[in-house]
Design a protein around this nucleic acid. Structure first.
Length: 585
RNA sequence: GCCGACGUGGCUCAAUGGUAGAGCGGGGCUUUCGUAAAGCUCAGGUUGUGGGUUCGAUUCCCACCGUCGGCUCCA
């Protein structure tokens, strides 16, 4: 445990002590440090509310003032159980039992009147717990198991100095400011509503532009890399996913079946079976492989109501999916090829700090997996070969593989340092087996192809949401739903603005004329709030010289230029997919 | 799904056991103005839905739907 974690962990003890003062009958769960703070779980006679935070913090400050030493004590398991049983701490007793069975020593820490089962280490005294703030209260299952009782979890944070705490709280505020749900409303990008159903996104015209650009770019990049683009239905016969195994593995995640004329249909939770059918629509030769079928396929998965979150976690979403059918000697190269596109595309959107994770089966095979050991070993080796060949560093994580094969996940870091998992590339020997597909090899024998499943942006809905947060709604020119607003200073300039707008639109620039009866200042303000990259102002001087005066979203005044120079510049930065405005700096 | 909070005009929010108010936004009129909010005026809500308590509920209770913070889950 590093110094900061130690301090936060000690702070958690003090918080627990404060809660114990308020509720002598409180039972305690765990209280570890976490990224950016710590939490502590309690079972209390009543529900805590944010109104209680102040009192708890006050008590914490008083406990800190008394500067009690954190006293360490080691005792044997039996007396520990007796001690905590006498204190009526059933969760602690359970924790001790687990420790005893694993042979770990039982250590205690006492600070003032508060005694806790704890491995430590701690700071010297309760005075050294830094500057803290309680952030939220939430339910949390004991030991993370939803069959266990639910405790109340207090989330809090602490930092050595007041400045650091203030900075961190400002960072949280910044994240809230970038919240895609709020920005989507302000910028009129998408919405959800009760009548449509939770977790189902309605894309408004401006969000539609964003999506269209992202999708067109995706298609362009995949065409370049010799992918074929296919389209498949939103529903299909259930037996397809029975064969693939999805109904068995993810029963809870499916929308219920539709029975018609003795056939059972479901909304597709995955595109793969359809792509397999396309592969299987004719006899394939080894010369045909690899076959790469890409699809922006919208799938439907029933997510539990409590997990829905804006456009990040929804019930209907569009995977930028593809399935590569290839020979055994090809799949490592195909994985590498998919990674290349991922790097290229994510880089274009401004994500350059990428981390890779190779997820494999867990050591003990506790979870259920399909396929033989040889398949898994071979698949994992293929993934790792692809990475070592490219000299890419990765982290290997056990237990995170899909049920049918290992995978590579790509994590990106956004503008304020948050991690998002985007791309996933998975090797699968299983599905070809289940669907009994094959190709004819050079010697005339029938061979099983390997499938590579991959999604690079993940889901278009989710990716768009991440982009909104990454750019805080201020999209680079090539993505901006409206690229420029033309602002006539007085009504007599509207006609000129309309002419210019027509001309710019003919160059593919997304523009509109703000011809409302408002003053220029107001129009600038509104365009600014809509985060439109360029404001083109036209008054007497501009009309006379056939110019527009360019103001950038960042406040910079570029001055008067001709509409055609403006058009050229905007076209260029759009083609380059640059984050620059093309003027100034 | 679970725990908790919340749900008032397009948006942000206020108010009360006696059928709701502001700002922004919208319409109209006036203003025609050089780099982040002109003025006047009008309209707009059966207070998420359905029950219940009450003489009377938007306010209290229950259920459902949805949203938010987490937990669990995430092919």
């Amino acid at each position: 445990m590093n110094e900061l974690d130690t301090m936060r962990h000690s702070c958690a003890h003090v918080m627990a002590a404060a809660v114990q003062e308020m509720f002598p009958d409180a039972q305690f769960g765990f209280g570890p440090p976490i990224e950016d703070g710590f939490y502590y779980d309690f079972e209390l006679p009543r529900q805590l509310s944010p109104d209680d935070f102040k009192e708890i913090e006050q008590r914490m400050r008083r406990l800190a003032k008394s500067a009690d030493h954190f006293e360490y004590k080691e005792i044997d398991g039996k007396s520990a159980i007796e001690l905590f049983t006498s204190m009526n701490q059933t969760y602690k007793v359970e924790a001790i039992n687990n420790l005893v069975s694993s042979g770990e020593p039982i250590s205690l820490y006492k600070s003032g009147p508060f005694l806790d089962l704890c491995r430590g280490p701690h700071v010297g005294t309760t005075k050294q717990i830094g500057h803290f703030k309680i952030l939220s209260v939430a339910g949390a299952y004991w030991l993370g198991d939803e069959n266990n009782p639910q405790l109340q979890r207090l989330y809090a944070t602490s930092f050595p100095t007041k400045d650091e705490l203030t900075t961190h709280l400002a960072r949280l505020e910044e994240a809230r400011r970038r919240d895609h749900r709020i920005l989507a409303k302000q910028l009129d990008l998408f919405s959800t509503n009760t009548d449509v159903g939770a977790g189902l996104i309605l894309w408004h015209p401006k969000g539609g532009v964003l999506r269209e650009i992202i999708e067109n770019y995706w298609r362009e990049e995949h065409r370049k890399h010799n992918y074929d683009i296919v389209f498949t239905p939103h529903i299909g016969r259930k037996k397809l996913w029975d064969i693939s195994g999805h109904t068995q593995w993810y029963q809870d995640g499916l929308f219920p079946e539709m029975e018609l004329e003795n056939q059972s249909f479901i909304n597709k939770p995955m595109n793969c079976p359809f792509h397999v059918q396309i592969f299987d629509s004719q006899t394939r030769s080894y010369r045909d492989l690899p076959l790469r079928y890409g699809e922006l396929g919208t799938v439907y998965r029933f997510e539990r109501s409590g997990v829905l979150h804006g456009a990040l976690r929804v019930r209907g979403f569009t995977q930028d999916d593809a399935h590569i059918f290839c020979r055994h000697d090809q799949f490592a190269k195909e994985v590498g090829g998919a990674l290349d596109i991922a790097y290229k595309m994510l880089g274009t959107f401004g994500f350059t700090d990428l981390k890779l994770i190779v997820s494999v089966r867990d050591e003990n095979r506790d979870k259920k997996y399909v396929g033989s050991d040889e398949m898994w070993t071979l698949a994992e080796q293929g993934l790792i070969d692809a990475l070592t060949e490219k000299n890419i560093e990765y982290q290997r994580v056990e237990g995170e593989a899909a049920f049918y094969g290992p995978k590579i996940d790509v994590m990106v870091e956004d503008a304020i340092g948050r991690q998002w998992q985007l791309s996933t590339i998975q090797v699968d020997f299983n599905l070809p087996e289940r669907f009994d597909i094959d190709y004819e090899d050079s010697d005339g024998s029938r061979r099983r192809p390997v499938m590579v499943h991959r999604a690079l942006l993940g889901s278009i809905e989710r990716f768009t949401a991440i982009l909104i947060e990454h750019f805080a709604g201020a999209f680079p020119v090539w993505l901006a739903p409206v690229q420029a607003v033309l602002i006539p200073i007085a009504d007599r300039h509207i006609e000129y603005c309309n002419e210019v707008a027509l001309k710019l639109a003919s160059h593919g620039i997304r523009i509109h004329v703000d011809d409302r009866g408002e003053r220029m200042n107001r129009k600038i303000r509104d365009a600014q709030k809509q985060k439109v990259p360029y404001m083109l102002i036209a008054g007497d001087r501009d009309v006379e010289a056939n110019n527009v005066s360019v103001r950038l979203r960042n406040g910079e005044d570029i001055g008067a230029i001709t509409p055609s120079v403006f058009a050229q510049t905007v076209q260029q930065v759009s083609i380059d997919r640059s984050e620059s405005y093309g003027f100034g700096h």
